Simulated scan of single mutants.
Amino acid sequence: RRSDAADIATLRSFIPAADDDSLSWRLALSEFLLEVAAIARSARLARELIRLQADLGTLTLLPCADTGYRGRTAVILGDVAAAIETHDPGAAETGVKALISATTDWLLTEQAKSY
């Protein structure tokens, strides 16, 4: 509800192309999520994101090496940005949950392959 055109432009600048390399993806995804916290003007959310990245960052960024994951996630990030732009917090929350699910599903699938 607090976003303006400049916020959305900045947020969209952190949506990498699906064919960008995995390092670019890792950095852009982290920046995208921190920008969402900044747009929400939530210091608590920003602190939690930083804490999670410190605790689990390597693990949660592993999927960025997978082109299929990057393609699916690019769409999700675009959906989140669109929801924030139209001030639709429900859709933004749904999009962020979809991102979490995509990451979790990828990690669980990879773990299952190792057994």
Results as ranks from 00 to 15, higher is better:
residue 33 L to S: 07
residue 65 A to H: 07
residue 98 A to V: 03
residue 57 G to T: 09
residue 89 P to A: 02
residue 13 S to M: 02
residue 51 R to M: 14
residue 76 I to S: 03
residue 65 A to C: 08
residue 5 A to T: 12
residue 110 E to D: 06
residue 33 L to E: 08
residue 60 T to V: 13
residue 2 R to G: 09
residue 71 G to I: 02
residue 56 L to K: 13
residue 9 A to P: 06
residue 53 Q to K: 11
residue 65 A to Q: 14
residue 13 S to K: 05
residue 104 T to Q: 12
residue 77 L to I: 03
residue 43 A to T: 14
residue 55 D to N: 14
residue 75 V to T: 13
residue 38 A to D: 10
residue 38 A to F: 11
residue 71 G to W: 08
residue 39 I to F: 10
residue 2 R to C: 01
residue 26 R to P: 01
residue 97 K to L: 14
residue 37 A to Y: 03
residue 66 D to R: 05
residue 47 R to C: 10
residue 3 S to H: 07
residue 27 L to Q: 13
residue 36 V to N: 04
residue 109 T to E: 12
residue 35 E to H: 09
residue 18 A to H: 10
residue 68 G to M: 00
residue 112 A to M: 07
residue 80 V to S: 08
residue 26 R to M: 12
residue 86 T to H: 10
residue 78 G to H: 02
residue 93 E to I: 04
residue 54 A to D: 15
residue 33 L to D: 03
residue 50 I to K: 15
residue 25 W to H: 13
residue 54 A to E: 15
residue 12 R to N: 00
residue 23 L to I: 04
residue 79 D to F: 00
residue 52 L to I: 14
residue 61 L to H: 06
residue 56 L to C: 12
residue 38 A to C: 06
residue 70 R to Q: 08
residue 39 I to Y: 07
residue 102 A to H: 05
residue 96 V to I: 15
residue 107 L to W: 00
residue 24 S to E: 09
residue 44 R to S: 12
residue 66 D to P: 00
residue 96 V to W: 11
residue 115 Y to E: 09
residue 31 E to W: 03
residue 44 R to Q: 13
residue 111 Q to T: 09
residue 27 L to H: 09
residue 29 L to M: 09
residue 79 D to L: 04
residue 79 D to P: 02
residue 24 S to Y: 11
residue 24 S to G: 09
residue 33 L to N: 10
residue 92 A to T: 04
residue 55 D to L: 14
residue 94 T to W: 11
residue 17 A to L: 11
residue 27 L to G: 04
residue 102 A to E: 08
residue 73 T to K: 07
residue 93 E to M: 05
